[in-house]
Computed example of a mutant assay.
Amino acid sequence: MQMFNPFLQTIENETHRTKVAELFTWVAETFPQLETTIKWNQPMFTDHGTFIIGFSAAKQHFSVTPEAQGLSPFVERITEADYSQTQNLFRIKWTQDIDYALLRDMIQFNIDDKADCTTFWRK
């Protein structure tokens, strides 16, 4: 998790920084088999060299990027959580709670779906 410290320091608001740090800790503890990396200035969790989920931060929110194929089965749940979304990511406003059950299911979906994947991104 030390790898993510430089990214966390870019989040100026201490409350926001703590929220993301707690999220990263939760992912690491819930899925201890995942590796951590930073690519394209984004903290990411990978499994056997393949992308599982990534995060980025902005002024009003932070984004969760599970790839389009990892997001599409969860569109309805993302909408129900009142998160905004695009085809490739969804955004959690700093004022919103994190739906950890949604994230757990999304991460597990990607782990299972990419079990035999030999590339970083899905083809």
Score class of each variant (00 low, 15 high):
Thr79Glu: 10
Phe45Gln: 01
Glu76Asp: 13
Ala101Ser: 15
Ile53Asn: 02
Gln108Phe: 07
Thr18Gly: 09
Asp112Tyr: 05
Trp94Tyr: 00
Ala58Cys: 07
Ala21Arg: 13
Glu22Trp: 07
Phe74Met: 06
Gln87Ser: 15
Asp97Glu: 15
Tyr100Asp: 13
Gly54Ala: 15
Pro6Cys: 07
Ala115Asn: 08
Ile52Val: 15
Glu80Asn: 13
Thr86Asp: 09
Met44Ile: 02
Phe74Cys: 10
Phe62Lys: 01
Gln60Met: 08
Gln87Phe: 09
Thr95His: 04
Arg122Pro: 00
Ala21His: 12
Phe120Gln: 00
Asn41Leu: 07
Gly54Leu: 00
Glu80Val: 10
Val20Ser: 04
Phe55Leu: 05
Thr25Ser: 13
Met44Arg: 02
Asp116Leu: 15
Gln60Gly: 05
Thr119Arg: 12
Thr118Cys: 10
Arg77Thr: 13
Gln42Val: 07
Pro66Asn: 04
Val27Thr: 06
Lys114Cys: 10
Pro6Met: 10
Thr118Leu: 12
Ser56Trp: 06
His48Arg: 10
Pro6Ser: 02
Thr95Gly: 03
Glu14Met: 12
Thr25Lys: 11
Ala101Leu: 14
Asp116Ala: 14
Ala28Glu: 14
Lys93Asn: 11
Ile92Val: 15
Leu71Met: 12
Met106Gly: 04
Arg104Trp: 12
Thr46Cys: 05
Gly54Met: 04
Ala57Met: 05
Asp47Arg: 00
Val64Lys: 01
Asn110Arg: 14
Gln2Cys: 07
Gln33Pro: 01
Pro66Met: 09
Ala58Ser: 14
Pro66Ile: 00
Gln60Ser: 06
Ile111Gln: 12
Glu12Lys: 11
Met1Thr: 09
Lys59Leu: 01
Phe74Asn: 03
Gly70Arg: 04
Thr95Phe: 03
Phe24Glu: 04
Asp112Ala: 13
Gln87Asp: 11
Lys114Thr: 13
Pro43Thr: 03
